[in-house]
Design a protein around this nucleic acid. Sequence first.
RNA 1: AGGCGGAUAGCUCAGCCGGGAGAGCGCUGCCCUUACAAGGCAGAGGUCACAGGUUCGACCCCUGUUCCGCCUACCA
Length: 931
Amino acid sequence: MTIRTLDKVYDPRQVEERWSRFWIEEGLFHASPEDPGQPYCIVIPPPNVTGSLHIGHALNNSLQDILIRWRRMQGRNVLWMPGTDHAGIATQNVVEKQLAHEGTSREALGRDRFLARVWQWKAKSGDTIIQQLKRLGASCDWDRTRFTMDEGLSRAVREVFVRLYEEGLIYRGERLINWCPRCLTALSDIEVEREEIKGKLYSIEYPVVDEPSLRLIVATTRPETMLGDTAVAVHPDDDRYRHVIGRKVRLPLTGRTVPIVGDSILVDREFGTGAVKITPAHDFNDFDAGERHRLPRLPIFDYRAHLDRKGMQEAEVDASVIAALAALPVPKARSRIELLLRDGGFLRKVEDHTMAVGKCYRCKTVVEPYLSPQWFVKIGPLVEPAVKVVEEGRIRIIPEGWINNYLGWMRDIKDWCISRQIWWGHQIPAWYCRSCNGEFIKGPAPIDSSFPGEDRPSAPERLTILPGAKPIVAKEAPVRCPDCGAHEFLRDPDVLDTWFSSALWPFSTLGWPDQTVELKTYYPTAALVTGLDILFFWVARMIMMGLKFMGDVPFRDVYIHALVRDAEGQKMSKSKGNVIDPLGVMDQYGTDALRFTLASMASPGRDIKLAEERIEGYRNFANKIWNVARFVHLNLNGDREPCPPESRSFADRWILSRLNAAIRAVSSELEQYRFDRAASALYQFIWHEYCDWYLELIKPVLQQATTPEALRTRETLVESFERILRLLHPFMPFITEEIWQTLPHKGTSIVRQPYPIPSPEWDSKEIEEAFTLLSKCLSLVRTGRALLNYAPGATIAFFACGTTPPEQDVLSGLRPQLSHLGRGNVEVSRHDSWPTTDVLHLASEGITVGVTVEGDVDLQKALDRIMKQRSDTEKEANRIEGKLASVNFTEKAPPDVVAEHQDRLKTLRRDAAILASSETQIRAMLGTRGA
RNA sequence: AGGCGGAUAGCUCAGCCGGGAGAGCGCUGCCCUUACAAGGCAGAGGUCACAGGUUCGACCCCUGUUCCGCCUACCA
């Protein structure tokens, strides 16, 4: 295959799939513990099986793949462990939607058939995202792909659960938890999203018993909960209320009276009226207050967050009120109860009020605090070590700014509610002996008919294990009850929070609880790459579990990258229609372009606003490289010969020195996870140094097919380009492989080639300085050319003058390059003064160039330009002169800084003088021409 | 309410240890020069959010203010 015959335009579509397949077929991503090299392992943040590759995945996995390919090329024993997450609630929702579409439901199917259905769905479409990751070029060891509900990982889950339970770190209890009335399951604290909404603040009057003229006014945003109030709290030091503490109030709309208690924690004297109603069954703070004052809990909502007839009866709500409210969902109940209170004369006032409500992170339904028996992880003992490893730097968090976020969150952490009332997931390994626990087991309940107005075909089958039941927690189902010898058991119907199994991911994927050689080799993993959104969901818990069960950190570095937003900075969401589909981008611009874009925008501490123009720019970059390859191919056939650095040409030595610099920059930026700066270094070097300068400089040389210089330059060209491909490969794997394969090479793939390291013998400060001089001169030449706008075919002569002798020597040596790139007959003079034939002199940075032209030139244009340039130069010179004149500056600034300013002033003054002389000459010529 | 981050060219963003304001895109002009017009060259464009302070010197360090974003939170 040769590139020469191919099109001028790089077509990623003809390239990517081929190499993707090749890499996998050749086993190039496969890792083995026996392989040489220091282990380097990253575990992938497992995408949901329901998922399809979105732009966030694309970013996350592009960055990981850059690290992985880079380290692999460095010769490390690299394992990128892939897999997917069963994503309990999300996946169950997907399949439930399908069922609803078919006119059935999970309840109708029953648990076993429903689960079979989910597995079936997973088998069919569960590897969609894996295929998409492969398309992205992700160089995971795909043979090792894991799933959080694999047998092995499930074993790890049971092992961890049982051990934590036996240590008393997992317990079951009836607590107030966040409950999603749509998903009908508990949620952990962090699965609840807060949202500010405009609500109302209702002030309600509670008459004091035996003194009806005295009424306590309580303020609430949720009047419907007042039916479940079991106390009213005031601040114990509040003079307004001190005397009523210990008395009672009559609860409106009910037959109950409730005590007035003093509570300094709950009550803020400044807020509202200073009196607070307490509803322990429906509010987290009130729950705690209820504990403090030993108040009863009266739930008045059912699990659908509808007003519950039975609950209200137990709360002694007036029969007429029950009739009016039963089975109403919360918002309706709220407006209804407002009317009832108003009719009863209890409603003092209603004000606007903004408040925060919690919403289910999966379905955005408003969550309710709900009293129910759940499983919890006692998090306190696990937190301590997880805080310590970050504080001590055994785990680095990058960027460091997030460390405080992490530590702050860990300090406030509450026990983790791990049970979910869904079916898809790891069922909790707890069983209950039927005969011992008969009275504590309710259900499976018949379909509950007490909810008129149901919008679902049937209420779910619910097996309820009451808090008093005694579980048998074991890795396998028990056969005989240790207490009574009975053989009949009911398994706890709940499943574990998805994040429970994710927390074990760094070691469960490596084979734990078995002590595998993989585990020994690759744990602790090197780095974790993730977005901020799952720092707490996932990262913190992996650290806790890793320390607990492996006795070591799960990873050494945590790199937290930004969120991808659209060009307007909006969060991408399907509902807003502003989603950039990475697959579409890959189709249109190529995977390499997408990857490079994402890498180049991954600056720390700033969200990524992805604009399509940027991707287009990097698509062009890929094309640029493609065309370099075509150029290199033109020079592949000639003889080439190896040669030491000092025998190479100026351009060759310069580019090799610059290549060293680029290699150093890319490597050091990658060490620091500065993907953006690494990408920028590559772009800058390849496009603006290698292409714009080096390739242009060597063209005249290469035209002489057989000279020794041409042979050596050819050698340098091919050699340097091959190195560039390797340098770029982690960022743009496809195009680099495609081209690399067409160059002379050893080995099957660039994937396993060594990553370039700098060769100190190429470093040359002198050459780089000479190049700087050349580029300054050329820049002046080109500027002059552009502003003179001389006729095509006109000859033009350049004289360099006023530079120091060594610089003149350098310039004389570079005369061929100056002529070629300046597109004119360049002569470098050693004159100390300007030939009178000069049309104009240009000056910049102490370099001066005189230009003589033949043919028509736009003198007026040249004059305007030079006038402006002189004015700018003088302005700058005056500024520096003023600074130098300042006594403070010359006395207090470091001497080298002062000297630098003095040099600069001298240079500027000379530049200004030269420009002034040009100006005079042009004026004279204009005068002649005009006359 | 607290914490964190941001504010630099028309747009998106770099800017390291305080010392001459940068890139990409867009815009203007010239050029299809034998790798690339998805290209080359040359330009225009900036009160570095605002106000103080430290310093010989501030985009950079300190204080305060405004606006934007995010995270956390029990103010009913």
